[in-house]
Design a protein around this nucleic acid. Structure first.
Lengths: 337, 337
DNA sequence: CGCAGTATTGAAAACCCTTACATAATTCTG
DNA sequence: CAGAATTATGTAAGGGTTTTCAATACTGCG
């Protein structure tokens, strides 16, 4: 079977173009790659032949000859698209500018899966790897470090110190938030951990702990949704029927919504009795009623920056800063006083 | 610069393995490709050499030799990830099973962009193309038809009759829905069109029109959000401050939420005075209060099926059915009586 | 007009695989 | 145990590019 369908059209290669234009294939190659040595006259002949035959360079052959594919592998956690859409948009837009293709991989947490993906990435000879890693554990990250490929960690710090990373400083965000509440004398603060974003939740807890420590207290307020619970909504509903807190911090919008709904159902008034803050802003935090207080984060820029750093890495530029923290803005809306 | 980083490690190729194992490269190739002609003894030697050297086949070279890349291009509308996440999940999971790589492209509506993407796809020599096309116009689709590559349309019908397509039959869904309301004597029905998913909205309107016609009436109830309006929320808010309808149908959850919020703000009681149905279900339709009545659609299966059809297409199997419609389930919740 | 020097072009190797065909090794048959 | 039939391996061409180095075509100058 031919490359495209059953119609056996003969392939148009650099040879066909060379023949059509009456030059050697080397010259055609030079025209394609915009080398400035080729004479204006021959360039025109070649260009015409290219148009006439509808020639499109074969990136596979180029990849083999150049030992680079101008494609980069993007690994994201399974089922994460709904909350990283803007990141991906930023990443893809930037990739387009630099003419990189993105090969998309999803990974469920797990070492086997991670190894499989790496095999795949190596096999595909992607020039680089961007890993959105708020759902992977240190163990999984370790696998990556053993394998040499320019890598940018996205959404969180990397483990090895060699790789670049781009992320929002959630630790500081939570620190500031909690500090503010502690100053107001509010210390019944909990963080919801649904075990789906371990590395990010770690950051949140670290931030809260730091604030508590500075106030001479110890932070212990995380509600961990047990692993065997499939419907976290039900779990939270049950929990908030029996417990009340002054401030509930969640990572994702869906968790904030679950908390707000369950509180409301249990006649806990928001924000009067319980305040809720969602760390990761989304389009829904503004559409939901009450509007959910959250941190506005530059998700698009996050993706765009990651990709830009990758291009720097690949062009051989020295990247001095390894760690890029992006700013957030806290936006108090209707779920906080 | 070497393929990976600055360390100029010498590449391990099929030659190195052959040398290490004391066989010819043809034999190594046979072992890799699990040909059954090679003797058990030599196979073992080769396998050992592969492990020892850490050899990983080069898909680029394979692609050149085999004239196929085992990768398929996925084109989705810009900024669509938040609402097609499950589709992509299904698609990627299936691709993984069949060992296909997915090269991701986003397209804003527009002919230039579409041409650029096609250039890119051809250049990359992807074996096939899957197009999520609920945001592209006929004009853009036409470009695709002029170019020979196995294509599966996802989320909507294709224009040409040659290509396969997988979609939810929204036309029928709306037809049944509207028919039910007309039978109850309710005919003040409107569809919100935000101009972002023209082809899908067309289906909705067609379904509604058909139902109206069968009842001897004409359907004219679409609220089109003007092109120059950037904040559709504000537009709807303004609209519903002055207008009231018995049934409002929206395509996406965000539109339904906007309608519900604006109605509520204008003291229009839902569902008593106005009922709202969201066609495309999402995780938020259940989390929002009131819970939004919607059509549950098998998004994951949609993606999975598209990919499976693609593998059939590529393996040269004859695909008899070109059009795959998936079933939906209407779920009446709290925004309808 | 002839030659040095420069601007263009071409030939061929390299990139890393697959596979048809040829050859070598093994097994089977009488 | 020879020769046929079969099985296992090797050789070499081909896939479509880039790029080095050599060859050729031009230019300007004396």
């Amino acid at each position: 079977m031919s490359q495209y369908g059953n119609v056996e059209k003969k392939r148009v290669t650099i040879y066909s173009v060379a023949k059509e234009a009456g030059v050697s294939l080397a010259t055609v190659s030079r025209v394609i790659n915009e080398s400035d040595v080729v004479k204006e006259n021959t360039r025109k002949k070649v260009q015409e032949a290219i148009v006439k035959l509808g020639y499109k360079p074969n990136a596979v052959a180029q990849g083999l000859a150049l030992k680079k594919t101008t494609s980069i592998a993007l690994v994201v956690p399974d089922g994460s698209f709904n909350y990283i859409d803007k990141v991906i948009n930023g990443l893809l837009d930037t990739a387009k500018i630099y003419k990189y293709n993105i090969i998309l991989h999803t990974a469920t947490a797990g070492i086997n899966e991670m190894n499989e993906i790496i095999d795949n990435v190596v096999k595909s000879r992607a020039d680089g790897l961007i890993l959105y890693n708020d759902a992977f554990s240190a163990k999984e990250m370790e696998i990556l470090n053993n394998f040499q490929i320019p890598t940018v960690y996205l959404g969180n710090k990397g483990e090895g110190d060699s790789a670049c990373c781009v992320y929002i400083d959630y630790e500081k965000a939570v620190y500031e938030l909690v500090d503010r509440y502690l100053n107001k004398g509010i210390d019944d603060i909990v963080i919801i951990d649904d075990r789906k974003n371990p590395t990010s939740i770690d950051l949140l807890i670290r931030g809260a702990s730091k604030a508590f420590e500075e106030h001479g207290k110890t932070f212990g307020g995380f509600i961990t949704i047990p692993e065997d619970v499939h419907n976290s909504y039900e779990f939270l509903s049950n929990y908030f029927a029996h417990n009340k807190h002054q401030l509930v911090i969640t990572y994702r919008d869906s968790q904030a919504i679950a908390v707000i709904n369950t509180c409301t159902e249990n006649n806990i008034r928001i924000p009067d009795e319980t305040e809720v803050v969602c760390i990761k802003d989304s389009r829904y935090t503004d559409m939901f009623r009450p509007r959910i207080s959250s941190f506005i984060v530059p998700s698009y820029d996050l993706g765009a920056l990651a990709m830009r750093i990758m291009t720097k890495l690949l062009s051989g530029d020295i990247v001095r800063d390894k760690e890029f923290k992006l700013n957030y803005v806290y936006k108090s809306k209707e779920t906080t006083k």
